[in-house]
Amino acid sequence: MKNLIIVVLSAVCIVLLGTIIFSKDKGAVDTAVNDKPFAGVTIRLAKQYGMQYATGYIVEKMNLLEKYLPGATIEWSSFGGGAAITEALISGHLDVGFMGMPPAVIAIDKGADLKIASGVCVPPFDLMVKEERLQSIADFTPQDKIAIPGISSTQHILLSIAARDKLNKARDFDSNMVAMANPDAYSSLVSGTEIVGHFTTMPFLELEARQGFRSILTGKEAYGDASIVCVTTGKFHSNPSVYAGLIGALNEAMDLLNSQDPKVLEIIAEVEKISIDDAKAFLDWPGTNYTANIYGLMGIANYMYEVGYIKNKPELNKLVWENARALIGKRTGEVSPVEKILGQ
């Protein structure tokens, strides 16, 4: 009888143990195959701060790449400008970067294996001044300096276009521009140095407006809308499903931004160190649009070619990947609305 109990108990134990081991094995195999199809893929992205780069940090903080590419390793690093990002993309230290269009156009013109994958934001650009005598850019004397965030920044090219159209000056107006990081420019402007203007975007527009500065030129008046874009390397683009995952994640982030999802407002407030109400106000700021369409690309690239910032005549095929071209559509019949946006 005793022996029988031991045998039964042992049998039960073995069956239980076997079930546990078996089910565990099965489970492990299942997760490896189905739940993490992108295990082993590493994506290295560069982010920048400021409202115009919100699409990037929303993708990061809401783990959207992890959602579209389960199992992939996602690495984010911070950069302070487009020039540093293009260097890292070219040298193979990054796969994806967010920047204004001019640094991307310059890198592609130099033969770098990069293309624009998507627009991520059309931000408001304004030239902020305080002095009464400054009513338009025609009133700037050679001593009056305008701060821009960098050479070959979107602001630099937009202001240069305005100078050509309104003053017939183009690159000569460069001597009125000073390259300074936005926070430095803000403190120089407020403390009253020879910097009397700041061509900038959010949140500095709002900060300066509070200090009594006003806009005398918008990016739209200077040229038109100009996108902040997402750029990827050719190597990254050559893996279609991973590339598609990036585009999906970007689109979702932009949709969440435009619909002012509560979680998105929280993230903006945290990253930009502002209140939730301010985050909402910044998203509602006139001229702000989170869209995958690339606004102003060919106009800006052609201008850069005309005045000699780049050497080769820009071609859309060399500047953007196929998904961005697909937004334009077929090349017969009437010009599509997006084609008008691109300035073709």
Partner: peptide, 22 residues
């Protein structure tokens, strides 16, 4: 660190400019 974009600048500024134009 800073400089005017078109007017005369020195060698340090030249490096910054050239970096911006790759």
């Amino acid at each position: 660190v800073f400089g005017t974009t078109g007017a005369v600048g020195g060698l340090g500024w030249d490096i910054y400019l050239k970096r911006s134009y790759l």
